[in-house]
Design a binder for these strands. Structure first.
Lengths: 191, 191
DNA sequence: GGGCGCGGTTACCGGGTGGTAACTTCGAGT
DNA sequence: ACTCGAAGTTACCACCCGGTAACCGCGCCC
Protein backbone atom coordinates (compact mmCIF):
# COMPACT_ATOMS: atom_id res chain seq x y z
CA UNK A 1 0.00 0.00 0.00
CA UNK A 2 1.54 3.26 -1.17
CA UNK A 3 1.53 6.37 0.95
CA UNK A 4 2.75 9.94 0.47
CA UNK A 5 5.97 10.71 2.31
CA UNK A 6 4.56 12.74 5.18
CA UNK A 7 1.92 10.18 6.04
CA UNK A 8 4.33 7.30 5.78
CA UNK A 9 6.72 9.11 8.06
CA UNK A 10 4.06 9.59 10.70
CA UNK A 11 2.94 6.01 10.35
CA UNK A 12 6.51 4.84 10.86
CA UNK A 13 6.77 6.88 14.04
CA UNK A 14 3.49 5.49 15.29
CA UNK A 15 4.48 1.91 14.61
CA UNK A 16 7.87 2.50 16.15
CA UNK A 17 6.40 3.62 19.47
CA UNK A 18 4.58 0.33 19.78
CA UNK A 19 7.53 -1.85 18.91
CA UNK A 20 10.01 0.02 21.09
CA UNK A 21 7.54 -0.02 23.95
CA UNK A 22 7.23 -3.77 23.76
CA UNK A 23 10.87 -4.67 23.31
CA UNK A 24 13.00 -1.70 24.22
CA UNK A 25 15.64 -0.01 22.16
CA UNK A 26 18.24 -2.73 21.99
CA UNK A 27 15.90 -5.62 21.44
CA UNK A 28 14.26 -3.88 18.54
CA UNK A 29 15.86 -4.06 15.13
CA UNK A 30 15.14 -1.72 12.28
CA UNK A 31 13.64 -4.72 10.53
CA UNK A 32 11.17 -5.13 13.36
CA UNK A 33 10.07 -1.52 13.07
CA UNK A 34 9.77 -1.73 9.31
CA UNK A 35 7.83 -4.97 9.51
CA UNK A 36 5.45 -3.53 12.06
CA UNK A 37 4.73 -0.73 9.63
CA UNK A 38 4.27 -3.20 6.80
CA UNK A 39 7.27 -2.02 4.80
CA UNK A 40 10.95 -2.88 4.45
CA UNK A 41 14.05 -1.49 6.07
CA UNK A 42 15.27 0.92 3.39
CA UNK A 43 11.99 2.79 3.60
CA UNK A 44 12.83 3.53 7.20
CA UNK A 45 16.18 4.90 6.14
CA UNK A 46 14.48 7.11 3.62
CA UNK A 47 12.84 8.96 6.48
CA UNK A 48 15.36 8.66 9.28
CA UNK A 49 19.13 8.94 9.18
CA UNK A 50 19.77 6.18 11.65
CA UNK A 51 18.22 4.08 14.36
CA UNK A 52 19.36 6.54 16.98
CA UNK A 53 17.82 9.45 15.17
CA UNK A 54 14.52 7.66 14.85
CA UNK A 55 14.49 6.98 18.55
CA UNK A 56 15.58 10.49 19.39
CA UNK A 57 12.73 11.87 17.37
CA UNK A 58 10.32 9.61 19.20
CA UNK A 59 11.54 10.77 22.58
CA UNK A 60 11.33 14.38 21.51
CA UNK A 61 7.76 14.04 20.34
CA UNK A 62 6.64 12.25 23.46
CA UNK A 63 8.45 14.66 25.76
CA UNK A 64 6.87 17.67 24.12
CA UNK A 65 3.41 16.18 24.33
CA UNK A 66 3.76 15.32 28.00
CA UNK A 67 5.23 18.68 28.92
CA UNK A 68 2.47 20.52 27.11
CA UNK A 69 -0.24 18.44 28.69
CA UNK A 70 0.98 19.10 32.21
CA UNK A 71 1.79 22.75 31.64
CA UNK A 72 -1.68 23.42 30.27
CA UNK A 73 -3.35 21.60 33.14
CA UNK A 74 -1.42 23.28 35.94
CA UNK A 75 -1.80 26.73 34.42
CA UNK A 76 -5.47 26.64 35.26
CA UNK A 77 -4.96 25.87 38.93
CA UNK A 78 -5.98 28.27 41.64
CA UNK A 79 -3.34 27.35 44.18
CA UNK A 80 -0.54 24.88 44.96
CA UNK A 81 -2.84 22.17 46.27
CA UNK A 82 -4.92 22.28 43.13
CA UNK A 83 -1.85 22.61 40.99
CA UNK A 84 -0.51 19.31 42.19
CA UNK A 85 -3.90 17.68 41.81
CA UNK A 86 -4.44 18.88 38.26
CA UNK A 87 -0.85 18.11 37.35
CA UNK A 88 -1.12 14.52 38.44
CA UNK A 89 -4.51 14.20 36.85
CA UNK A 90 -3.08 15.32 33.52
CA UNK A 91 -0.10 13.06 33.95
CA UNK A 92 -2.09 9.93 34.64
CA UNK A 93 -4.59 10.72 31.91
CA UNK A 94 -1.73 11.07 29.46
CA UNK A 95 -0.25 7.77 30.51
CA UNK A 96 -3.66 6.14 30.32
CA UNK A 97 -4.13 6.81 26.66
CA UNK A 98 -0.53 6.93 25.50
CA UNK A 99 0.78 4.04 27.49
CA UNK A 100 3.15 2.90 24.79
CA UNK A 101 4.65 6.37 24.77
CA UNK A 102 5.05 6.25 28.53
CA UNK A 103 6.85 2.96 28.35
CA UNK A 104 9.21 4.20 25.67
CA UNK A 105 10.07 7.31 27.63
CA UNK A 106 10.20 6.00 31.18
CA UNK A 107 9.97 2.26 30.79
CA UNK A 108 13.61 2.56 31.34
CA UNK A 109 15.50 0.66 28.69
CA UNK A 110 15.86 4.21 27.57
CA UNK A 111 17.86 5.27 30.58
CA UNK A 112 20.84 3.17 29.81
CA UNK A 113 22.04 5.29 26.96
CA UNK A 114 23.41 8.59 28.14
CA UNK A 115 21.94 10.59 25.29
CA UNK A 116 18.49 9.09 25.65
CA UNK A 117 18.60 9.19 29.41
CA UNK A 118 19.27 12.89 29.32
CA UNK A 119 16.16 13.39 27.23
CA UNK A 120 14.10 11.56 29.82
CA UNK A 121 15.75 13.54 32.58
CA UNK A 122 14.96 16.81 30.87
CA UNK A 123 11.30 15.97 30.97
CA UNK A 124 11.46 14.77 34.55
CA UNK A 125 13.36 17.89 35.47
CA UNK A 126 10.75 20.23 34.07
CA UNK A 127 8.07 18.42 36.00
CA UNK A 128 10.19 18.25 39.12
CA UNK A 129 10.74 22.00 38.99
CA UNK A 130 7.03 22.57 39.14
CA UNK A 131 6.84 20.31 42.16
CA UNK A 132 9.87 21.86 43.82
CA UNK A 133 8.15 25.23 43.95
CA UNK A 134 5.44 23.66 46.07
CA UNK A 135 7.86 22.67 48.81
CA UNK A 136 7.72 25.63 51.13
CA UNK A 137 10.41 24.77 53.60
CA UNK A 138 12.86 27.65 53.96
CA UNK A 139 15.40 25.51 55.75
CA UNK A 140 15.89 23.39 52.65
CA UNK A 141 18.37 24.51 50.04
CA UNK A 142 17.33 24.27 46.38
CA UNK A 143 19.27 21.13 45.70
CA UNK A 144 17.55 19.19 48.49
CA UNK A 145 14.27 20.57 47.36
CA UNK A 146 14.91 19.27 43.86
CA UNK A 147 15.89 15.93 45.23
CA UNK A 148 12.60 15.55 47.04
CA UNK A 149 10.69 16.88 44.04
CA UNK A 150 12.38 14.28 41.95
CA UNK A 151 11.26 11.68 44.43
CA UNK A 152 7.68 12.78 43.92
CA UNK A 153 8.05 12.53 40.17
CA UNK A 154 9.44 9.06 40.66
CA UNK A 155 6.49 8.23 42.87
CA UNK A 156 4.17 9.05 40.02
CA UNK A 157 6.24 7.22 37.46
CA UNK A 158 6.53 4.11 39.47
CA UNK A 159 2.85 4.09 40.35
CA UNK A 160 2.19 4.25 36.63
CA UNK A 161 4.49 1.37 35.92
CA UNK A 162 2.75 -0.78 38.49
CA UNK A 163 -0.63 0.35 37.32
CA UNK A 164 0.06 -0.56 33.70
CA UNK A 165 1.99 -3.67 34.53
CA UNK A 166 -0.63 -5.35 36.64
CA UNK A 167 -3.60 -3.68 35.04
CA UNK A 168 -4.90 -2.60 38.39
CA UNK A 169 -8.55 -1.72 38.07
CA UNK A 170 -8.60 1.93 38.97
CA UNK A 171 -9.37 4.88 36.77
CA UNK A 172 -6.74 7.55 36.19
CA UNK A 173 -8.66 10.24 38.05
CA UNK A 174 -8.96 8.29 41.25
CA UNK A 175 -5.34 7.26 41.02
CA UNK A 176 -4.32 10.87 40.47
CA UNK A 177 -6.36 11.96 43.44
CA UNK A 178 -4.78 9.39 45.75
CA UNK A 179 -1.24 9.99 44.59
CA UNK A 180 -1.58 13.74 44.79
CA UNK A 181 -3.01 13.41 48.27
CA UNK A 182 -0.04 11.31 49.24
CA UNK A 183 2.40 13.75 47.69
CA UNK A 184 0.74 16.78 49.22
CA UNK A 185 0.48 15.41 52.71
CA UNK A 186 4.02 14.13 52.41
CA UNK A 187 5.44 17.44 51.33
CA UNK A 188 3.60 19.24 54.15
CA UNK A 189 5.10 16.79 56.58
CA UNK A 190 8.73 17.23 55.66
CA UNK A 191 10.80 19.64 57.71
CA UNK B 1 47.67 -14.10 37.67
CA UNK B 2 46.17 -17.48 38.41
CA UNK B 3 43.35 -17.97 40.84
CA UNK B 4 41.52 -20.98 42.23
CA UNK B 5 38.08 -21.46 40.70
CA UNK B 6 35.96 -20.18 43.54
CA UNK B 7 37.93 -16.98 43.92
CA UNK B 8 38.02 -16.36 40.21
CA UNK B 9 34.31 -16.85 40.02
CA UNK B 10 33.70 -14.29 42.72
CA UNK B 11 36.14 -11.88 41.13
CA UNK B 12 34.32 -12.24 37.82
CA UNK B 13 31.03 -11.43 39.49
CA UNK B 14 32.54 -8.41 41.20
CA UNK B 15 34.05 -7.07 38.00
CA UNK B 16 30.82 -7.72 36.13
CA UNK B 17 28.78 -5.56 38.50
CA UNK B 18 30.99 -2.60 37.72
CA UNK B 19 30.93 -3.04 33.97
CA UNK B 20 27.21 -3.70 33.73
CA UNK B 21 26.53 -0.72 36.00
CA UNK B 22 28.49 1.58 33.71
CA UNK B 23 27.20 0.36 30.37
CA UNK B 24 24.07 -1.66 30.93
CA UNK B 25 23.36 -5.17 29.77
CA UNK B 26 23.24 -4.68 26.04
CA UNK B 27 26.19 -2.35 25.75
CA UNK B 28 28.39 -4.74 27.64
CA UNK B 29 30.04 -7.60 25.79
CA UNK B 30 31.43 -10.70 27.40
CA UNK B 31 34.80 -9.46 26.22
CA UNK B 32 34.33 -6.28 28.24
CA UNK B 33 33.56 -8.25 31.36
CA UNK B 34 36.48 -10.56 30.83
CA UNK B 35 38.85 -7.70 30.18
CA UNK B 36 37.70 -5.86 33.28
CA UNK B 37 38.59 -8.94 35.26
CA UNK B 38 41.98 -9.16 33.56
CA UNK B 39 41.15 -12.38 31.83
CA UNK B 40 39.82 -13.67 28.49
CA UNK B 41 36.36 -14.65 27.38
CA UNK B 42 36.51 -18.42 27.60
CA UNK B 43 37.35 -18.14 31.27
CA UNK B 44 34.02 -16.46 31.73
CA UNK B 45 32.32 -19.34 30.00
CA UNK B 46 34.07 -21.75 32.30
CA UNK B 47 32.14 -20.27 35.18
CA UNK B 48 28.90 -19.17 33.58
CA UNK B 49 26.78 -20.93 30.99
CA UNK B 50 25.88 -17.79 29.09
CA UNK B 51 25.72 -14.05 29.29
CA UNK B 52 22.14 -14.23 30.50
CA UNK B 53 23.04 -16.64 33.27
CA UNK B 54 25.86 -14.44 34.44
CA UNK B 55 23.52 -11.48 34.63
CA UNK B 56 20.80 -13.51 36.30
CA UNK B 57 23.23 -14.59 38.96
CA UNK B 58 24.24 -10.99 39.53
CA UNK B 59 20.64 -9.90 39.96
CA UNK B 60 19.99 -12.77 42.31
CA UNK B 61 22.95 -11.92 44.51
CA UNK B 62 22.09 -8.24 44.67
CA UNK B 63 18.43 -8.90 45.33
CA UNK B 64 19.20 -11.25 48.19
CA UNK B 65 21.58 -8.78 49.77
CA UNK B 66 19.13 -5.93 49.57
CA UNK B 67 16.24 -7.99 50.90
CA UNK B 68 18.31 -9.25 53.79
CA UNK B 69 19.54 -5.80 54.67
CA UNK B 70 16.06 -4.34 54.83
CA UNK B 71 14.51 -7.32 56.55
CA UNK B 72 17.13 -7.26 59.30
CA UNK B 73 16.77 -3.52 59.79
CA UNK B 74 12.98 -3.48 60.00
CA UNK B 75 12.83 -6.49 62.29
CA UNK B 76 14.32 -4.41 65.08
CA UNK B 77 11.72 -1.66 64.83
CA UNK B 78 9.31 -0.92 67.65
CA UNK B 79 6.40 0.28 65.53
CA UNK B 80 5.34 1.18 62.02
CA UNK B 81 6.79 4.68 62.09
CA UNK B 82 10.15 3.36 63.15
CA UNK B 83 9.87 0.47 60.76
CA UNK B 84 9.62 2.78 57.81
CA UNK B 85 12.46 4.94 59.10
CA UNK B 86 14.82 2.03 59.67
CA UNK B 87 13.80 0.45 56.39
CA UNK B 88 14.66 3.52 54.39
CA UNK B 89 17.82 4.05 56.37
CA UNK B 90 18.95 0.54 55.50
CA UNK B 91 17.94 1.02 51.88
CA UNK B 92 19.85 4.24 51.38
CA UNK B 93 22.86 2.94 53.26
CA UNK B 94 22.91 -0.08 50.99
CA UNK B 95 22.73 2.06 47.91
CA UNK B 96 25.43 4.32 49.28
CA UNK B 97 28.02 1.64 49.45
CA UNK B 98 26.83 -0.67 46.72
CA UNK B 99 25.90 1.91 44.19
CA UNK B 100 27.06 -0.19 41.27
CA UNK B 101 24.77 -2.92 42.46
CA UNK B 102 21.89 -0.49 42.71
CA UNK B 103 22.44 0.69 39.18
CA UNK B 104 22.55 -2.83 37.83
CA UNK B 105 19.34 -3.78 39.60
CA UNK B 106 17.28 -0.63 39.23
CA UNK B 107 19.29 1.54 36.89
CA UNK B 108 16.81 0.26 34.47
CA UNK B 109 18.51 -1.11 31.41
CA UNK B 110 17.56 -4.21 33.31
CA UNK B 111 13.83 -3.64 33.10
CA UNK B 112 13.58 -4.00 29.39
CA UNK B 113 14.09 -7.72 29.40
CA UNK B 114 11.10 -9.55 30.76
CA UNK B 115 13.08 -12.12 32.65
CA UNK B 116 15.36 -9.56 34.27
CA UNK B 117 12.56 -7.14 34.91
CA UNK B 118 10.68 -9.79 36.81
CA UNK B 119 13.67 -10.27 39.05
CA UNK B 120 13.72 -6.55 39.81
CA UNK B 121 10.00 -6.61 40.38
CA UNK B 122 10.30 -9.49 42.81
CA UNK B 123 12.60 -7.43 44.97
CA UNK B 124 10.42 -4.37 44.70
CA UNK B 125 7.42 -6.46 45.53
CA UNK B 126 8.91 -7.81 48.72
CA UNK B 127 9.75 -4.33 49.85
CA UNK B 128 6.38 -3.00 48.76
CA UNK B 129 4.64 -5.65 50.83
CA UNK B 130 6.37 -4.42 53.92
CA UNK B 131 5.23 -0.91 53.12
CA UNK B 132 1.70 -1.99 52.26
CA UNK B 133 1.21 -3.32 55.78
CA UNK B 134 1.82 0.17 57.09
CA UNK B 135 -1.09 1.65 55.17
CA UNK B 136 -3.90 1.40 57.66
CA UNK B 137 -6.81 2.52 55.57
CA UNK B 138 -9.62 -0.03 55.80
CA UNK B 139 -11.45 1.47 52.84
CA UNK B 140 -8.63 0.52 50.53
CA UNK B 141 -8.59 -2.94 48.99
CA UNK B 142 -5.28 -4.82 48.95
CA UNK B 143 -4.58 -4.09 45.32
CA UNK B 144 -4.84 -0.33 45.78
CA UNK B 145 -2.76 -0.61 48.87
CA UNK B 146 -0.07 -2.39 46.91
CA UNK B 147 -0.23 0.22 44.21
CA UNK B 148 0.46 2.99 46.68
CA UNK B 149 3.13 0.94 48.41
CA UNK B 150 4.77 0.49 45.07
CA UNK B 151 4.69 4.21 44.60
CA UNK B 152 6.58 4.65 47.85
CA UNK B 153 9.20 2.16 46.75
CA UNK B 154 9.50 4.10 43.51
CA UNK B 155 9.87 7.29 45.49
CA UNK B 156 12.89 5.80 47.22
CA UNK B 157 14.34 4.41 44.03
CA UNK B 158 14.00 7.57 42.11
CA UNK B 159 15.42 9.66 44.92
CA UNK B 160 18.40 7.35 44.86
CA UNK B 161 18.83 7.74 41.15
CA UNK B 162 18.82 11.50 41.41
CA UNK B 163 21.09 11.40 44.42
CA UNK B 164 23.70 9.27 42.67
CA UNK B 165 23.30 10.97 39.33
CA UNK B 166 23.92 14.50 40.49
CA UNK B 167 26.03 13.60 43.46
CA UNK B 168 23.89 15.69 45.73
CA UNK B 169 25.78 16.39 48.92
CA UNK B 170 23.64 14.77 51.55
CA UNK B 171 24.43 11.76 53.66
CA UNK B 172 22.30 8.65 53.43
CA UNK B 173 20.91 9.00 56.94
CA UNK B 174 19.57 12.47 56.43
CA UNK B 175 18.15 11.49 53.08
CA UNK B 176 16.50 8.48 54.64
CA UNK B 177 15.04 10.60 57.37
CA UNK B 178 13.55 13.09 54.92
CA UNK B 179 12.19 10.51 52.55
CA UNK B 180 10.68 8.44 55.31
CA UNK B 181 9.09 11.56 56.76
CA UNK B 182 7.60 12.29 53.38
CA UNK B 183 6.37 8.75 52.97
CA UNK B 184 4.95 8.56 56.46
CA UNK B 185 3.13 11.86 56.36
CA UNK B 186 1.89 11.01 52.88
CA UNK B 187 0.53 7.64 53.87
CA UNK B 188 -1.23 9.14 56.90
CA UNK B 189 -2.81 11.68 54.61
CA UNK B 190 -4.35 9.28 52.13
CA UNK B 191 -7.92 8.22 52.64
C1' DG C 1 0.50 6.59 -24.02
C1' DG C 2 5.06 7.06 -22.80
C1' DG C 3 8.54 9.06 -19.92
C1' DC C 4 9.69 10.36 -15.25
C1' DG C 5 9.85 10.52 -10.43
C1' DC C 6 8.72 8.82 -6.16
C1' DG C 7 7.65 4.95 -3.14
C1' DG C 8 9.33 0.27 -2.54
C1' DT C 9 11.96 -4.01 -2.76
C1' DT C 10 15.76 -7.41 -3.21
C1' DA C 11 20.10 -8.51 -2.12
C1' DC C 12 24.09 -7.53 -0.19
C1' DC C 13 28.22 -5.89 3.04
C1' DG C 14 31.00 -5.31 7.21
C1' DG C 15 31.54 -5.42 11.83
C1' DG C 16 30.65 -6.87 16.30
C1' DT C 17 29.21 -10.43 19.56
C1' DG C 18 27.85 -14.76 21.77
C1' DG C 19 29.81 -18.98 22.00
C1' DT C 20 33.44 -22.89 21.21
C1' DA C 21 37.41 -26.17 20.05
C1' DA C 22 41.94 -27.00 20.50
C1' DC C 23 46.11 -25.92 22.37
C1' DT C 24 49.43 -24.18 26.19
C1' DT C 25 51.23 -23.40 30.80
C1' DC C 26 51.34 -23.34 35.65
C1' DG C 27 51.87 -25.70 39.90
C1' DA C 28 50.54 -29.19 43.57
C1' DG C 29 51.37 -33.89 45.05
C1' DT C 30 54.17 -37.83 44.99
C1' DA D 1 61.89 -34.06 38.88
C1' DC D 2 57.75 -35.75 36.53
C1' DT D 3 52.99 -36.06 35.86
C1' DC D 4 48.49 -34.76 35.42
C1' DG D 5 44.73 -31.87 35.97
C1' DA D 6 43.13 -27.35 36.44
C1' DA D 7 43.54 -22.52 34.72
C1' DG D 8 44.08 -19.65 30.57
C1' DT D 9 44.88 -18.34 25.81
C1' DT D 10 44.57 -18.04 20.75
C1' DA D 11 41.95 -18.37 16.99
C1' DC D 12 37.96 -19.26 15.09
C1' DC D 13 32.73 -19.79 13.67
C1' DA D 14 28.00 -18.36 12.86
C1' DC D 15 24.72 -15.24 13.21
C1' DC D 16 22.49 -10.93 13.60
C1' DC D 17 21.99 -6.22 12.75
C1' DG D 18 22.78 -1.46 11.11
C1' DG D 19 23.29 0.48 6.90
C1' DT D 20 23.48 0.79 1.55
C1' DA D 21 23.46 0.21 -3.67
C1' DA D 22 21.01 -1.05 -7.26
C1' DC D 23 16.97 -2.12 -9.23
C1' DC D 24 11.54 -2.23 -9.93
C1' DG D 25 6.85 -0.42 -10.95
C1' DC D 26 2.85 2.37 -10.13
C1' DG D 27 0.56 6.47 -11.44
C1' DC D 28 0.65 11.45 -12.74
C1' DC D 29 1.13 14.85 -16.36
C1' DC D 30 2.15 16.57 -20.73
Amino acid sequence: MRLPAAERRQQLLDSAVGVFARNGYHNTSMNDVAEAAGVTKPVLYQHFESKRELFRELLGEIGDQLRDTIAKATAEAGGPRQQIELGFRAYFAFVDDHNDAFRVMFGAGTRRDEEFASEARKVEASVAELVADLIEIPALDPQHRLLLANGIVGLAESSCRYWLQFEVDIDPEELASQVSQLAWAGLRGVG
